[in-house]
Structure formats: structure tokens, C-alpha cells
């Protein structure tokens, strides 16, 4: 089993000061972008294909049984839900499996922190790249959904912004999980305990009002709930109906989660 590089077990030193430079972050993001570009055809496919499958099966298949929801088709209810799920999964996958492979198996971080880039540059670069991927994938998906007539074309740039901010939230949470796992298998716990429940109970496939009162309040704590809450009015063409509380929640957590991830990773790696 691959182990954490050059980090003796049980080492909990003080976290060194912040050392972050935009040029360093961008140089790291450019590296991940270049890897992505090498295989862009396979990378472009899932976000274009997935909405087809989801909309046909859940949107129109299940939708035929459901009928209309609040006067609109079930497909139009589900569309912003699957968009939000993509925002979550793209960034979370990138800073869990993706970052872990680069850190532990490929020792990419070790090679790069030997150059003028700092560990802070690398960590923030990983999360910015995760957010870029969320923005990119949700934008591609939004194009398909708009093609189905389930999202106004003009809302696509706004989806990209929500994708980036929401992506930062999940990239931060993903990297924080990466700082805790002992091996790559540890991520499956995060998937079962965190990602899958959120995917199902954050107002994605059915309205939160169907949940019992306690669960409805608990759902308000989940970041995905707020991504859905923002995307749903955008898809309905009523952007003024976006709840300010959800927007505020996302912006605050988009700053806090990455900060937490940096703190946890540096405690783990630097001593």
C-alpha cells in the first residue's frame, strides 16, 4: 500500500503561516488543465451524456407516473437537481481521488513544492481546479438541459458561476476528507455517508416539503440543498426568486471549506 510521503505517523506539529501567491496557484491549475486537455474528448462526454440518461429515465419515465409538480413537469423539477449533483460530484471527485493519486501515488505535490511553488499554492490550486471542473461540467450539462427546453439559454452563464462557487464548497470538503483518509479506500465511506445521502435528500428528486419536519431542517445544513435552491429558480426563468440565504450560505462555505482543507492538509503534511 502506498503511504503518505515523508510524513511520520502521529506527527501533529503547529501549522506554518500562510504562503499563497496567485502566480503559483495558476501554474498549478495550468498543470491540471493540461492533463484534462490531453483527454478532453473522454472528459466532455459524461456531462453531455448524463442529462440525456437522467432526463429520459427519471425525468420522463418516473415523471409520467408523477404527473405535474406545482404546475410544472417532473422533468423540469429534476433538471436543476441533476445539475446540482454534477456540481457536487465533479469537484468532490477531483479533490478526493484525483488529489490523493497526485499526492500519494504520483508524488506530484512533492515534485512541485521543490520549485518556488508553496504547499498553499498547490492546495488552493487543487481546489480552484476542482471548482473549474464543476463549472465546466455543469455548463456543458446546462447546454443539453437548455436543449430540452428545461432551462433558459440566458441562464447558462449563471449556472457556470453557481458551478464554480458550489464547486469550491465541495472541492474544499473533498480535500478535507483527503487529509483524513489513510488509504484511497477511505473515500468510499465519504461517498456512502456524505455524497449519496445528499444526492438523494437535498431537494433534488422530490421537494423538501415531503420530508418530516426534523429532516427538513437537517437538509438545510447540507450544501447541496442550497445549490439546488439556487439552480431551481434559474431553470424556471425566475432568477429574482433565488433565496438570498442560500446564496449567502454558499459564498460563506465556499470560503470556509477550502480554508479548513488547507489547515487540515498542512497539519498533516508540514511539520
Amino acid at each position: 500500500m502506498a503511504d503518505w510521503p515523508s510524513v511520520p505517523a502521529g506527527n501533529k506539529g503547529p501549522v506554518p503561516r500562510v504562503d499563497l501567491r496567485l502566480g503559483g496557484v495558476l501554474a498549478f491549475v495550468a498543470r491540471n488543465r493540461d492533463v484534462y486537455r490531453k483527454t478532453w474528448k473522454t472528459n466532455f462526454l459524461p456531462p453531455l451524456l448524463e442529462p440525456f440518461l437522467y432526463l429520459l429515465s427519471v425525468g420522463y419515465g418516473v415523471g409520467a407516473l408523477v404527473g405535474t409538480l406545482n404546475g410544472a413537469s417532473y422533468a423540469s423539477f429534476v433538471a436543476p437537481g441533476i445539475l446540482a449533483i454534477t456540481v457536487m460530484q465533479s469537484a468532490f471527485f477531483e479533490t478526493t481521488y484525483g488529489s490523493f493519486v497526485r499526492l500519494v501515488f504520483q508524488r506530484t505535490w512533492d515534485a512541485i513544492t521543490a520549485t518556488p511553488l508553496s504547499l498553499d499554492d498547490v492546495l488552493v490550486g487543487e481546489m480552484v481546479w476542482g471548482a473549474v471542473k464543476s463549472a465546466l461540467n455543469s455548463t456543458l450539462m446546462a447546454v443539453v438541459i437548455a436543449g430540452f427546453g428545461l432551462l433558459p439559454w440566458l441562464a447558462i452563464p449563471a449556472v457556470a458561476v453557481v458551478g464554480f462557487v458550489g464547486g469550491l464548497v465541495f472541492a474544499g470538503l473533498g480535500l478535507a476528507v483527503s487529509a483524513r483518509v489513510k488509504s484511497i479506500d477511505g473515500f468510499s465511506f465519504a461517498m456512502y455517508l456524505f455524497i449519496t445521502p445528499m444526492m438523494l435528500f437535498a431537494g433534488t428528486f422530490f421537494p423538501l416539503s415531503q420530508l418530516p419536519v426534523g429532516a427538513r431542517w437537517a437538509a438545510q445544513l447540507l450544501p447541496l440543498t442550497h445549490v439546488v435552491a439556487i439552480l431551481r429558480p434559474l431553470a424556471a426563468g425566475t432568477p429574482l426568486a433565488i433565496p438570498a440565504s442560500s446564496a449567502a450560505y454558499l459564498v460563506v462555505v465556499a470560503l470556509l471549506a477550502p480554508a479548513l482543507a488547507v489547515w487540515m492538509m498542512k497539519r498533516k503534511l508540514q511539520t
Partner: peptide, 14 residues
């Protein structure tokens, strides 16, 4: 500085 680390850490993606 120029660094040759003990463990190979070339970037296998390139």
C-alpha cells in the same frame, strides 16, 4: 536550487 529527490516523482500524465 536543483533537486533530484530519492523517490522518482516525474509526472506520469506527460
Amino acid at each position: 536550487l536543483g533537486i533530484v529527490p530519492q523517490e522518482n516523482n516525474l509526472d506520469p500524465d506527460f
